[in-house]
Each structure stands twice: as structure tokens, then as C-alpha cells.
Design a protein around this nucleic acid. Sequence first.
DNA 1: TTGAAAGCGGTACCAA
DNA 2: TTGGTACCGCTTTCAA
Lengths: 357, 357
Amino acid sequence: MVRRKASSSKGVKKPRVKLVDEVSSGRRATSYDVARLAGVSQSAVSRCLQPGASASAKMRERVSRAALELGYTPNAIARSLITRRSNLIAVLISNLTSLYYPEVLSELSAHATSHGERILLFALPHESDIDDVLDQVLQYQVDGVIAAVRLSPQQLAAIDHRRIPVVFFNRYLRDHPVNSVCCDQVDGARILVTRLHKAGHRRFGVIAGPKDSVVGEERVRATIERLQELGIKDTPVVRGGYDYESGAAGLHELIKLGKRAPQVAVCANDVMAIGCIDAARFDLGFNVPEQLSVVGFDGVGPSTWRSYQLTTIRQPIRRMAEAALMLLMDRVENPKLPPEKRVLSGQIMEGTSARLG
Amino acid sequence: MVRRKASSSKGVKKPRVKLVDEVSSGRRATSYDVARLAGVSQSAVSRCLQPGASASAKMRERVSRAALELGYTPNAIARSLITRRSNLIAVLISNLTSLYYPEVLSELSAHATSHGERILLFALPHESDIDDVLDQVLQYQVDGVIAAVRLSPQQLAAIDHRRIPVVFFNRYLRDHPVNSVCCDQVDGARILVTRLHKAGHRRFGVIAGPKDSVVGEERVRATIERLQELGIKDTPVVRGGYDYESGAAGLHELIKLGKRAPQVAVCANDVMAIGCIDAARFDLGFNVPEQLSVVGFDGVGPSTWRSYQLTTIRQPIRRMAEAALMLLMDRVENPKLPPEKRVLSGQIMEGTSARLG
DNA sequence: TTGAAAGCGGTACCAA
DNA sequence: TTGGTACCGCTTTCAA
């Protein structure tokens, strides 16, 4: 097989479409074009553009001059094909319109860049829409996957079967050893409850997140558990959808439920806590925190706004993203590494939305 | 050049590393593997996986069975190399931690998917960090670029030179005909000012965005211009950074500036308007809107929260994203199409943060 | 309808 | 240090 190489054998073997178009205006410059202009071999061009390859200074000079002249940019696709490394990592994420995930994505992107990786974004309308995109993830030969969504064991197996490392973000798979980075929800919830109890609160209500949120369920479970340890039983739990409206609705529900209004609303995330505060103030005329303490989870931007000044558990998103990429890239380099789970602690933000002891 | 094809010529020409490892456990299945198992040629496999290629029903059946058995997934990288189409579009975006851009990204992603494209994400810490990533954009042979950041004429030229279509999102390049989708800032600002004036407001103050925000500057310019038409001169303008704190600080500055406090604060985006409202209430004890009307731009999620109920101009982000992708994909298919600018109108959201006439 | 073969634009091994 | 060459895994003519 003879490749087109210089203009020497030009047009002998079936000249493709328009040679003019190829050379002058059309087609992007390739390493062959650079080689021809520099008067060296194509492999030399490739070598010159690698950091640690052997090439004389003179050759480097000639090649880089030719590359510059042609506006040459190496083709990452072609490189990926032969090196079997796409430098792409898939980020599976949903709820980009929430307040929490955009920050996650932003940090993931920053750290991916610092590892020389690009992010192939899979923003799902709902966490459950994974099957549709999983095939795409595999087709693009990504180096790794960061999943900020739930994956079924089958879905995980499909990725695993291709030897693509996966790191879960704030999620994991029960009974399956997987790589994951989480914020310790249990600890945070326990601290909040303990401090609230110490301040004298005895009637609690919980506004949970959607059932399919592992993180949310954990927060709720830990809250209930700690309350029971403190001798408080039968804490009412209502379910919300992590959004502002369901926080407000949740409070109304809680109040309808019990004989007496709760003294504390523990919300499974900040946005619901904010909705809860607004409902308390505007619908019920409650003072927060005098008549109702409200706490949330996450520590999103608006939680510090002066209308709310939420008492919440802030997730160390930056450090979590950093850990996620570290975990992932370690396994890209060395696929034999065993699964690892890293749990970082959240930080309590003492706002004014709750009375703490 | 003889390719490994069936096991017929197995290992004759330098058998690569470990054949066992390749076949049984290691390497992902390729179309050759499928072909061998199905007992057909590799090109037949390729054809069977194309929608409109000629292949008998029997062949299709055999191939798809073999593909399923091997867990075969076509390699998008290899396909891209030969088809010169990556099905990747680069999205250049910054400020992912703002309230506005995540929604943009979310909509862009949804519409990209519906065009069969994937998003290669370039989330920049600052709008000005483009040069670092532009090279990456080009290397990945993206089909097109959506730029929600500013690009210099040189940067645009570099992309243009590779014949990669670009669509700007809420931005454009003065004196350069480019594709762009914008929300009409001028119209929105004029309507707001007119209505505010009609309600009897006469003393205005403006909290502008950062200087390098084209959109923000346009909002401010249109505001001032309309005020002048209405006979109101010398409106004080202070500069903010689009964030909550600078909205609050902006109000304080405005008040320090004039002899009398303004009756209206026109803020260049919603988040600053929210900061402004909080400063008015908590620092100055103002009632909003009785003592101070506050308006913003964008219509982000929290603008409807009951603590704020912002009067603002909501951008039709979904339709803008849809238009951006339409514009882009049209030009991917037909590069000869001339540049086009599409301007959509915003919608006034009449909250309770301002008195309108 | 089917298979052989020529690339797409690189990387990497080899001998010179 | 350099050039020749064999791929990476697919699509796409071109004959059969």
C-alpha cells in the first residue's frame, strides 16, 4: 500500500476529487503536509511534536516552522485511535438546573483539565435516562466515567466489561465494591440533630428528598436515627422533590400532620430549606428561627444570602471533585487498582435559620 | 498490507503480544471479531450496522447476533476518523457557578442530543482563558462550536480557518459577521424603564455588570438611553461583578453617590438585584418596592422565590439554545450558508420588587 | 448482495 | 537521530 507522500507520485493512482481543493483551500493540514513542506518524513513530524522524543534541534526547528506556516493542528481523533487513549472522560450528571450540580461540574471540569482530560458531557433530563446514553459513552472510548447519577449493577457491568474505570460522585452501589467519593451525610446529619436538640428543640419534622436519591435518604435516615438515640420517636417525614416549591409544600404538610407544629424542619437539601423558610414566613407568619428552626444540606450559593442565612452542612465540592479525578486517573493509568471509597466530611455552616446549642 | 482477518493466517506475521489476552479477556471486540464470529467479512458488519445500507435479512440477523454475543460497540473514534465527522460540538462557557449559565448548558445539551451530537465541555474559569483551550477545541475535530464567551477576532479566525462553524450565544463580534443567537437586551431594558417611569419613578440608579460583559453593557446603555428620552439625565452608574455581594455593595455606592437615594435600582442581572434587595431591606431598612424599586435581568430560578419575586426580563433560554443548535447544525451540513444573527425577545416578569405603571 | 482493499491521520517499532 | 512501515478500527468505493 503506497501512501500519498510527496508530490512525486502525484495523481498516478487515481487522483482524488480535486487536488487543488485539497492543497490550497480545502482540507486541514496533516502531518504529511508538514513533512513535505519541511522536507522530512512524516514520522519525524510526529516525533517533533512529542515532548520526550529524540529529534535534533535543527529538525525540530524546521518542523515547527512548517507546522506554523500551515496552521497545523494534530488530529486528536487519529492519535486516540492508535494510542487507545481518548483523553476524554464522560461525566454523567443530571439536574443541571439545580444549585448543586453546576458547581460539581465546574470543579470536575477544572480538575479534569489539570489532568489533561476533556469532559464529554452527558447531562440527563432525569437520573433514570441512562440507558439511552450509555451506549454513547462506550462508543466514544472514554478513558473513564464519573457518574453523578445512579447506575444499576447491569449498567455498571456494561462499562466495567469494557475495562473503563468508573468513579461515583456522592453515590455508590450497595453490595458492589466501586470507586466513589462521597460527603459523609451521616455525620453531618448527626451533628445537626445533636446541636438542635441541645438548643432545646424536641418536636422535629423532616422534609425528605425524592425516594431515588441515595444521598437524601441517607440524610433522613441518619436524622431519624440520631433523634431516636436522643429519645425522640415518631418524627414525621414528608417527601419533597428537592425543589423550592416542595420545600414550602413540605412544611404545610408537616403542620397538617402533627397535632402541634414542629419546632424544627430538617430539609434534605438547601433549596427545600429555603422554600420551607419562605413558607414559614409568608404563609404562616412564623419567625425563623424563633418559632421554627430550619436546616438544610449542601451549602449552595444562595444559602448564604441574607434573607436565608441557612444553617446547613456544606459539602467540600472542590475537594470531592479533586478526589474523584485522582481516583479515576489512577485507575486509568493502572486498571488493576482495587475499588476505593473516599468519604469526606462536610462542614457545618452556622447560619441564623436555626437555633443551635 | 495484510490484515489479521480470520484465524487462518494466525500468528504468521509477528503475532502481537499475547493472543490469549486479546481474544479471551482483554481487548474490546471490534468489527473484525464480529465478522469472524458471524462468518462474514468485516465490511459486511459495518454495513449491517448502518441504517440504509444493502444487506440481506439473513446477514443482518447473523451479524447482530454475533455483535450481541461479543458485546460489540462500534468505535466512534475510528468512525470519526474516516467520516471526518466527530459528532462532537464544543461548548465554550464560563461562570458555571452563576445561576444563568447552567440553565444554558442544560438546554444546549438537550438540543445537541436531539441532533445526534455530544457536547465537549470547555468550562473556563474566566472568559479570558480561551487561548489555552482553543488548541484543544481544534485538535478534537469538533463539528462546530457554541461560544457563550467572548472570542477575539484572531481566535475566531483560527477556528474559521479550519472551516469549523461557530455560533455565539448572547454575544457577537462587532464589525464581524458571525452567527449568533441573542436575547434582545435593548428592548427589555426600554420596556422596564418605560414602565418604571410611568409608575412615577424619577430618580434612577444603575448597577452595571463587569466591563467585559457585552450583554451587561447593552442593558445599561439601553437603560440610560431610554431614561434620557424620558428627560432623565445624569443617572448614576456603579459597577458590579454580577454576584450577590456586588449587588449589595452597588446599592450602598449608589446611595453614597447622590444627594438623595434613588427610587429605582436597575441591576444588570438578577443575582445583583437580589443582593440589592437584601441590602435595601437589611442594611437600610427600606421597604421594597415602596421605598425602592429593584429590577434585574435574566429570570433565573431564585428570582421567583417569595423573598424576592423579582421584576425582571426573562430570557427564553430554551428557544435560544434551540436556535443556536439549529444555526450550527445547518452550517455543519452546509458550510456555505452565510452568517446569521437571531435575536429573540425576552419576557417581562412582573414580580413585586418594583412598582410598574 | 458481498468481500477485498484503500485509506482517515496519527504513533511506535524497527533497522539504517 | 532519522525514515520506513505496520497498524488503530472503522467507512467506502469497486469488482465479483
